[in-house]
Amino acid sequence: MTEEHLLKGWEEFEPGATLFSFEGKPDQEVHHENNSVQHSVADWRVDKPVHNKEFCIDCQFCWVYCPDTSIIPDVDDKGKGIFGHIDYKHCKGCGICVDVCPTNPKSLLMFADHLPVEEALRQWPEKEEKK
């Protein structure tokens, strides 16, 4: 769905249909209204990943393998990347983060999109015995 405010008249568009990534300089990190980061694809999702920090080892596999740039890392005191949060505006619920999560039990699991996160955490499974 297109946000109404972007539906401008022909005379208001940049010539050549160019789009810009940032408002101002890139190092200010303010994304332009035409950056897709402004656009939600949350309605693509049926199931959502939920993160359980109790088991997470901050391996960052979920970050590197997320096709939707939806695992947003934090930086710890030592300047190292750690799990931050899930960006539910851009997560399409593919489940790759869950698949690549190496912990036992997993620190990321898929739940129905409508299920509150607290409820999902309550339903978290126990450690699985190695097959």
């Binding site: 980061v37 694809v41 590197v64 190292k80 593919c94």
Partner: peptide, 30 residues
């Protein structure tokens, strides 16, 4: 390692319309 890599400035943003689970954007980001 990934702890270091994940502090990178992200240059390919979400909100794109690739299918869920598409490998293209993973490669692009890497």
């Amino acid at each position: 390692n990934l702890k270091q890599f994940s502090t990178s400035k992200e240059r390919f943003q979400g909100g794109h319309r690739l299918c869920p689970g598409c490998s293209h954007s993973i490669i692009v980001r890497e």
